[in-house]
Design a protein around this nucleic acid. Structure first.
Lengths: 141, 141
DNA sequence: CCGCCAATTAGACAAGGTCCAAACTTTGTC
DNA sequence: GACAAAGTTTGGACCTTGTCTAATTGGCGG
């Protein structure tokens, strides 16, 4: 992959094809919203951003598309807030810092934290991943 | 605290007072559901258990009460499933194993897993806790 | 141009959870 | 006991996130 691949819709289309996803108009806009910012967005934040450019993109499409991206492992789902799910364009191993008051989510660089002694997985189960979330709040609150 | 304190409604009432919570009928039943089983229950599971004994306990009371218990740090909220929150009567340091297919949540004994290199917390924020969730699925799925 | 299939759409729907005003309990004071 | 004040509980309306469905659109090979 080349240097700044996800800042153009061309590059995004490539990325979609690479994950065996048909690059349609709407899918490109949704992926662009996530990958050009490299931020954690909730479904309705994605919808807001996309609708600013493409007002006719429906709620169903946003949800369908985010789920498709997740199934194809192009993005990752982050569950930290009981009220909504965040989507993370970074699928490599890393963990999260969540501001429970402001509802914002940022990455923890992978070197800063490490898990030792992975527990034994019970029979008949296989590990899918480990999520680490450091919950923080503003000092005054 | 004595040996098997949370298997009687007496003991539960003590526990509530200890957390500065007025031990009412409904609160005792809700706490009893959680503490006598020592399991992770969702709000509607709690409601089911409580209603079997006290049919007139309303949804609003269950949610109010669980939130009250959480604010008073008597139980802990575990966010792993986008669809619902689990409540954990064990507030000591430990982490969780979540079966994403069956939707069940169990504890990881605290010795089995360890985090090193806690990341530096950005200015103006203070850590509230670290949640580690190992996501697993049945091998066949 | 035609027909096909995938993608999209609007809107109805479901589930989890919150909010509110009214009713009911409890408690302390006289 | 009577009373007022404070604290709890209640049902139901309501909100939000997210899913489902049936109908429509759009792109593309032939």
């Amino acid at each position: 992959m080349d240097a700044a691949p996800f800042c153009t819709r061309q590059g995004i289309a490539e990325l979609l094809r690479h994950h065996e996803i048909n690059p349609t108009h709407q899918r490109i806009e949704i992926a662009f919203a996530l990958f050009s910012r490299r931020e954690h967005l909730s479904a309705d934040q994605v919808m807001g951003i996309v609708n600013a450019r493409v007002p006719e993109c429906s709620k169903a499409t946003v949800y369908n598309t985010l789920n498709l991206f997740r199934e194809k492992r192009m993005i990752r789902e982050v569950v930290v807030d009981p009220a909504k799910v965040f989507y993370d364009p970074n699928t490599s191993a890393h963990h999260h810092l969540y501001d429970v008051v402001r509802g914002t989510l940022v990455d923890i660089p992978p070197g800063d934290i490490e898990v030792t002694g992975m527990p034994s997985i019970p029979d008949g189960l296989e590990a899918e991943g480990v999520d680490i979330v450091v919950r923080v709040r503003p000092v005054d609150a």
